[in-house]
Simulated assay, not measured.
Amino acid sequence: MPTPDPTWFERDPLELAPLLLGGVLRRADASGAVALRLTEVEAYRGSDDPGAHTFRGKTARNATMFGPGGHVYCYFTYGMHHAVNVVAGPEGSGWGVLVRAGEVVEGESLARERRSARRASAPTGELARGPGNVAQALGATLADDGAALLDEPSPGHRGGPEAHIEMTPLWSFEPAAEPPAHRTGPRVGVSGPGGDASAYPWRFWLPGEPSVSAYRAAVARRRSR
């Protein structure tokens, strides 16, 4: 099925997160397209969630999370990598779902090329394992923040017949025909109250998938002097 109407994403992230599992998230640009069958996600619930970027309100960095559902929230973290989220809920809620892992189902060679540009090659099942690798496989950067999840139109041509194709990155999401069975547990690497496993078991994953992360509790980071 095509990307759902934006209102499909305007759900509580605890409802949307398991519906994203097994669905296909795709990003296409002039380099090509990469698509992931989502295997692991985490829900974040705004002002009700001390682990959420939006817990303390709207900022320039997290503004996309306060927009309507059905958009991409992309941020840069730890000075190391980008991460991709699907904005959930109605406008103003500050809700979203982090894409933690996926299986590359289209564009494996491009995903592998992007991976090898920064580090050693990885087994196929681990190309998009972890939020940083998800963003890298898809080619997502801060320029993608706020992008809408749409049906993909044909790329436009500019200039004469020998001109290259210019394409703005295009995002789409195709839900699974039937939501697959999943498991839940604590979110990975969330510190403080938001990392309470009993209060916030808001990680959702497909069992038996090699792309799913191994659980790691948060480690306090020292501030550099």
Rank of each mutant, 00 (worst) to 15 (best):
P4W: 09
L16G: 13
P18A: 04
D29G: 11
A30R: 15
A33V: 15
V41R: 03
E42I: 11
G46C: 04
S47Y: 03
T54V: 08
R56F: 05
R61E: 02
T64P: 05
F66K: 04
H71V: 07
C74N: 06
F76L: 08
Y78I: 07
H82K: 07
H82R: 04
A83L: 11
V86K: 06
G89Q: 07
G92E: 02
G94F: 02
E103W: 00
L110V: 05
R114Y: 05
R115E: 02
A117V: 02
R118K: 14
T124R: 14
L127Q: 07
A128P: 05
G130I: 10
G130R: 07
G130Q: 06
G139D: 10
G139S: 12
G139M: 11
A140R: 09
L149R: 08
P153Q: 03
E162M: 09
A163E: 13
H164I: 07
I165G: 04
P169R: 08
L170I: 15
P175H: 03
A177N: 10
E178N: 09
H182K: 06
V188F: 01
S191C: 10
G194D: 08
A197G: 04
A199K: 14
Y200N: 05
G208N: 07
P210T: 09
R221A: 14
R221T: 14
R223C: 05
S224Y: 03
